[in-house]
Write a protein that binds this DNA or RNA. Structure first.
Lengths: 220, 220
DNA sequence: GTCTATATGCGGATAGAC
DNA sequence: GTCTATCCGCATATAGAC
């Protein structure tokens, strides 16, 4: 068995790199089996590392989870803030949704066990509520932009219901997907299509061609 | 402290009644704090009973969960099968949705930790998938009935997306609700309104008055 | 930084008296 | 049916050698 290279890199001491390896492996295991089922010893074993060493880097499992969630918040933040330029067409929205679902998929352990995590680690609750509220506001804003651009025809009330529904779907899609037959495509693209299709009845006729294209792609 | 009355009732031996008390208390605790956080000793303590006695009635915690889920399946089955008579208006659908959400709310621990439960107790996975598939089929059928009755105008493809979205919402609503501000009404009625509002753009004009009434009720 | 060895505590599960 | 007492196993957490 080759010994892992822990020699310090310029500006990157071995300890930092070990921390990153721990986080990467933990993320993969959490996504695969869930936080509840993945013990600290399991993580250490997967890394070929002793529990003692793991504990040297992260005193408690909660710290690993917390670190990963903070990373998610940082990476999702810019996506969640929405595009800087105004949306002018439905495929702009499509791109936004696709990026969002890819990020959620990358950290899918968070939403898959959201209830367990927020009761096990209460500090997470408030932060996830904040993210949710931000998502709703962004979606409302984007829909309002589309309405202004003449792509979409909906009242303020309709947009509010729609935005909530979109965030609900984004939040729960990968959890719900596990209740569908395994033959179904449930990846990020399919998820984005599902969300986009909520808008269809409100779209201007000429904006529907793009959605038609996506339909053929994801419900073939 | 008064001693609990465990004297046998006609046709109801004390053991049965104790089983029921255990199930009732477990359900309440699971709904409140989640299956993962509620230990067998906690259940026993709540009932003023020893762990040994609890174990006499249910050898493993999994058996309690399993029993409760089976009860849910039995009670949800008739609801999920849908009304026996054809739907003729949107308020028929409203009643169906409301009954469904009340049942889900009663057993909300199941969906709130669905991912945790299906990995911890794999036998649950297949059964929940079955229920989900059944729900989708029923919703498709009901929408098709409404379309036939002239209340709703949607293609088969649109109905498919819609049914999936409705079941997703039913499945995840009470989980998602915990990410909303606590000031929001997120009860079964509000949930049913949210699902119904997915249909609005497809409804015939004269069917929207009922939804308008609900809107005033739940988004006041 | 990394290891081995060990302490601590809890939840699940059991045995046997009453 | 119900209790007390106890065991097992796992996960978290720590101590101290290298």
């Amino acid at each position: 068995m080759p010994k892992p290279d822990n020699s310090p890199l310029p500006g990157k001491p071995a300890s930092l790199r070990t921390r990153d390896r721990i986080l990467a492996t933990s993320l993969a295991l959490f996504n695969a089996d869930g936080v509840a089922k993945v013990s600290a010893s399991r993580i250490a074993a997967e890394l070929g590392m002793s529990q003692g060493n793991l504990h040297y880097h992260f005193r408690r499992k909660e710290e690993i989870v917390d670190r990963l969630v903070r990373r998610y918040e940082q990476e999702a933040g810019p996506v969640l803030a929405g595009p800087t330029s105004e949306l002018a067409s439905v495929d702009d929205l499509w791109l936004f949704l696709h990026l969002g679902f890819e990020k959620i998929f990358e950290y899918r352990f968070i939403y898959r066990e959201i209830d367990y995590l927020t009761t096990e680690f209460p500090s997470l609750g408030a932060r996830m509520r904040e993210l949710t509220a931000q998502g709703i506001e962004t979606l409302k804003r984007l829909c309002t932009q589309l309405a202004a651009a003449g792509c979409l025809r909906a009242s303020e009330e309709e947009i509010a219901v729609l935005a909530l529904q979109m965030i609900l779907t984004a939040t729960c899609w990968f959890t719900f997907a596990r209740l569908l037959p395994e033959t179904e495509d449930t990846g990020p693209g399919r998820a984005a299509y599902q969300v986009l299709s909520l808008l269809v009845p409100f779209l201007a006729d000429n904006e529907r061609t793009y959605v038609e294209y996506l339909r053929r792609k994801y419900r073939a």
